[in-house]
Design a protein around this nucleic acid. Sequence first.
DNA 1: GTGGTCTAGACCACG
DNA 2: GTGGTCTAGACCACA
Lengths: 128, 128, 128, 128
Amino acid sequence: MALLTVDHRHPTPLYAQLEQGIRGAIAAGRLAPGAQLPTVRQLAVELKVNANTVARVYVELERAGVLETRRGVGTFVAQTQPAVGSRRGRDAELRALVQRCLNEAAARGFSAADVLGQVRQLSDSQGG
Amino acid sequence: MALLTVDHRHPTPLYAQLEQGIRGAIAAGRLAPGAQLPTVRQLAVELKVNANTVARVYVELERAGVLETRRGVGTFVAQTQPAVGSRRGRDAELRALVQRCLNEAAARGFSAADVLGQVRQLSDSQGG
Amino acid sequence: MALLTVDHRHPTPLYAQLEQGIRGAIAAGRLAPGAQLPTVRQLAVELKVNANTVARVYVELERAGVLETRRGVGTFVAQTQPAVGSRRGRDAELRALVQRCLNEAAARGFSAADVLGQVRQLSDSQGG
Amino acid sequence: MALLTVDHRHPTPLYAQLEQGIRGAIAAGRLAPGAQLPTVRQLAVELKVNANTVARVYVELERAGVLETRRGVGTFVAQTQPAVGSRRGRDAELRALVQRCLNEAAARGFSAADVLGQVRQLSDSQGG
DNA sequence: GTGGTCTAGACCACG
DNA sequence: GTGGTCTAGACCACA
């Protein structure tokens, strides 16, 4: 599977999907600090998205300290990632997030067991 | 936890969150066929959302055959739910869905193991 | 005559009139697959209707597979129109529809012969 | 077919459908001056509509001079029907009315020829 | 009191 | 500039 993807039919805005995809890939180790990202145009073509949309996400993530742009060279994952806040006290956040996922799955005919299996499979193949 | 919730800060549109929440609650059996939903205005107050936003979701789900409205009476879960397509051939759909969830989790500092545990916990408490 | 019209005095809701007008124009070939529709705002001005009302119809018809929207570009007639169900077994539907029309005509002083003539005239001028 | 009908799924409000049905039946001669209409409750049951809705239509039509109510006896078609305005100069009205009908028909997969045939058939069987 | 329709207008996402 | 989302609030149809 491609490292970064967006779903044009999903109601979540493309820019948000892309931003989350990049943040997630870094947090999960699929994109290491210092790694180079695709150019704006490459990624725009690959994701079938307007280049402005990709560029805006890169700029935003640079402002957040997640990415670094070296002019004329490219865009890279920052060496030091901004802290994210510990898990402590954020159980409600996790629960809401997972509940949304289960809702979406159930709404499309997938059971919690289906989701469970897929989570296992993806986490094994990616960093587990 | 409340049966239906929305997160005003999440980039997914409120109406899409609510629609998925209702569909999920029905699919998971937390809302049974024939059950009455909260009135448009009640739910709007409860979710801190405009009544039009709730009404839009109810109308949409009625068109889809998921809900039934009786004018002047209220809104109910339809007795016969529309088919949803078998899981067969939709593995890619499930994978994308779960990947989005894991991305979002990772981006906020939760590991795949955290998600795994939360899925187990929610599915135990809701559907056995 | 304008391609799309609504009657603000008719008891049928504006959005329903517009939806039927668009569906009818496509089915009758006055709007070909791939053709671009007026922009939401243009049509709103032309029909003296709120932009939200037009947008609502466009969104609904997109969900139904009748239209396609390209974000930031415009709204177009879908290349492949959804099936509509054969006429077989729907004679009652046609009869009810025409009866409603004749009722409305009679109530305003038009005879069935008047309607007959007008149907001939319109079908000659529009679809041969 | 029943003399008066309403379609609960049609977007036109029930009261408007009923009013038009009664006016049309009178204008077409299916309800003669002096004829008695069903009681409010009978018609409400028959049409599966709330009695208030039927009552409101009767009241409205009485105000318009189309019906007459004799207390304790029933509701009747008035002996002298209010004038409706000649057809002259109202061609645009007829055209719009028929165009709406053809749109609705085309949107449901019926051709202008289908409508033509049905108009002939109904007008023959009812008073043509 | 229930849902449905419409308006006006703000702000966002995308190209 | 295109469509999409949301709000606030008026008024209508129906039970």
